[in-house]
């Protein structure tokens, strides 16, 4: 049998709900099986036992980054399509599970998303209107998001077992690292611009900037309670020193 374009389209649409049944036991296995179902039904058309066995396999614990999950859907559908040995499919699933999570976290949650959020907040701090700032975040961010999902499904289907090479490609790690560096520069700019925007009267802007800088320094050095306490003390000292008399 051949898989039709609409089967892939249905699978892709379902990956947007991949974490709908996320839980502490099987993680996103329910979402994986839900996304795979249109493809598995076509692959095992007229073979209810084969379909049940495939569903059994894919309802076992699985976790990944939600945006890269289509890569797993494509690759696993390919293996099912080619009648790969079930044990090999299981090993492959396990390997994909950890690597897709790590790559996606680094690339999306720690690089792509902060980048567009910070660009948007900075633009707002510099005078862009509220809705324009929101759209400046939503449109480019989601353009990347949707393209990543569609690319993942296609790449997974085309490469099957070879998809590991795609995930471990050095350009992904380099891009994530570079973007994270840009994010931190933006974060510094946003902090100053936002503190300047928090007009409240009374406290001079320079004193507020001093407070923010002290807290930022302590926060980056000792995140958590120790950083908060030392930062607060440093900030207090800064404010007291600034006040006249």
């Amino acid at each position: 049998m051949r898989l039709a374009r609409k089967d892939f389209a249905r699978a892709l649409a379902r990956t947007f709900a991949a974490q709908g049944t996320w839980n502490y036991g099987s993680y996103m296995a329910g979402g994986l099986a839900f996304s795979l179902l249109p493809l598995l039904e076509r692959i095992h058309a007229g073979d209810p036992v084969g379909l049940r066995q495939a569903m059994d396999r894919h309802l076992r614990p699985f976790n990944a980054h939600p945006y890269l999950m289509p890569l797993a859907v494509g690759a696993l559908a390919r293996l099912e399509f080619e009648g790969e040995d079930p044990e090999r499919i299981e090993r492959f699933r396990t390997a994909l599970s950890s690597s897709l999570g790590a790559v996606g976290d680094r690339l999306v949650w720690q690089a792509w998303r902060p980048f567009w959020l910070l660009v948007s907040v900075l633009a707002y701090s510099l005078g862009l209107g509220p809705w324009a700032a929101v759209l400046l975040f939503l449109f480019p961010y989601n353009a990347g998001h949707v393209v990543l999902r569609a690319w993942g499904l296609r790449r997974g289907w085309e490469e099957g077992l070879g998809v590991g090479r795609t995930i471990s490609a050095p350009w992904i790690r380099r891009t994530a690292r570079l973007l994270a560096g840009v994010d931190v520069v933006l974060l510094g700019a946003v902090t100053v611009a936002l503190v300047a925007k928090l007009q409240g009267g009374g406290l001079p802007l320079a004193a507020r900037a001093l407070v923010a800088a002290a807290m930022a320094a302590s926060g980056i050095a000792w995140p958590g309670v120790v950083g908060a306490v030392t930062g607060a003390l440093a900030a207090l000292a800064g404010v007291v020193a600034w006040l006249p008399g």
């Binding site: 720690q110 902060p114 994270a180 560096g181 994010d183 931190v184 520069v185 933006l186 974060l187 510094g188 700019a189 946003v190 902090t191 100053v192 936002l194 503190v195 928090l198 409240g200 406290l203 507020r208 900037a209 407070v211 923010a212 800088a213 002290a214 807290m215 930022a216 320094a217 302590s218 926060g219 980056i220 050095a221 995140p223 958590g224 950083g227 908060a228 930062g231 607060a232 900030a235």
Partner: peptide
Amino acid sequence: LAAVVGGAAGAAAGGLFGGRRGWLLLAAGG
């Protein structure tokens, strides 16, 4: 608020890009 924003930015910078380079990049942006 300034303290909260600064502290949050510092802690976030540590998570995104830890180490001395993180400090320098944050300071450069500021």
